[in-house]
């Protein structure tokens, strides 16, 4: 575990640290499962990190701890120099499903976090900003449509807007596009990169697609199960901005192969 922690620090690109995890562990008491053990990582300002691993290796648990939804059993979780002891305003979260509420228009869904935080008046005032965000994700003109009329990809774009409206310091993404078809997913990933770059956002992505992890990230954390832990930290030194064409370069192929190897070693252990 110490080795993994040391590796993390080596792999971290230089920059102001935003989010720090030190030796985080989680045991689900109910069935005595060690879901996480000794996870240490540092997210620097404006960086994009991905965590990849087979299902059941603790990715969602890690993200829930980072978002303050559940407490860790051990370790230290610090965002912007303040320990995370519950849900926080400076954390934005995205789920596998878009989770838009069908009785609210797209615009009303996007300003919902503001409405909850500061009331209806503030939500009304945030609508201008919400419109700008809709334009940023290419949903201009859909302000007053209801979610039932949005496609899966459009719904996820709307939920990106909802995540961004509170201007969070860190974006936590739990397999956000895995319910979309492959063409849409590739496209959404490029959109995500563009949005993160334009806002200098710090992002942490959970995925089970190696390609997705490599094309988007500065660092990929490879996780292994039982107990869930970071087994390898892979820095991705592809130039930015990334394009879908890069997926055919030898460098990309090497990185994918390397990560697949790391995961396979686990699968056949």
């Amino acid at each position: 575990m110490q080795a993994a922690a040391a590796l993390t620090d080596l792999a971290t690109p230089v920059g102001e640290p935003v989010y720090q995890l030190r030796n985080v562990g989680k045991t689900y008491a109910r069935n005595a499962i060690v879901a996480l053990e000794g996870v240490s990582l540092t997210l620097t300002k404006g960086s994009f990190s991905a965590v990849i691993g087979s299902s059941g290796c603790g990715k969602s648990t890690l993200l829930k701890i980072m978002s303050g939804l559940i407490p860790p059993s051990t370790g230290r979780v610090v965002l912007q120099n303040r320990p995370v002891t519950g849900p926080r305003r400076d954390i934005g979260m995205m789920f596998q499903q878009a989770v838009l509420f069908p009785w609210r228009t797209t615009l009303e869904n996007i300003v919902l976090p503001i409405e909850i935080r500061d009331g209806k008046g503030a939500a009304k005032a945030a609508e201008t900003q919400a419109r700008e965000l809709l334009e940023l994700v290419g949903l201009k003109g859909f302000e007053n449509t209801y979610p039932s009329e949005l496609s899966g990809g459009m719904a996820q774009r709307a939920s990106i807007c909802r995540m961004l409206i509170t201007e969070p310091a860190v974006l936590l993404l739990d397999e956000p596009f895995s319910a979309l078809d492959e063409l849409t997913r590739d496209f959404m990933n490029m959109e995500l990169q563009r949005i993160c770059t334009s806002r200098n956002a710090t992002a942490f992505l959970v995925t089970h697609s190696i390609q997705e992890a490599v094309i988007l990230s500065d660092v990929v954390y490879v996780m292994k199960p039982r107990p869930g832990r970071v087994a390898e930290v892979v820095p991705i030194d592809l130039p930015r901005p990334r394009t879908l064409d890069m997926m055919t370069t030898p460098k990309f192929g090497e990185l994918v192969e390397h990560i697949r190897g790391a995961l396979d070693k686990e699968a056949f252990k």
Binding site: K64, S67, G68, L69, P87, R88, R89, I91, M93, F95, Q96, Q97, V99, F101, L112, P113, I116, R117
Partner: peptide, 12 residues
């Protein structure tokens, strides 16, 4: 659970 978690993360 997604809707519940979303509301929790929004601090509702």
């Amino acid at each position: 659970s997604n809707s519940r978690n979303l509301f929790k993360t929004m601090g509702a």
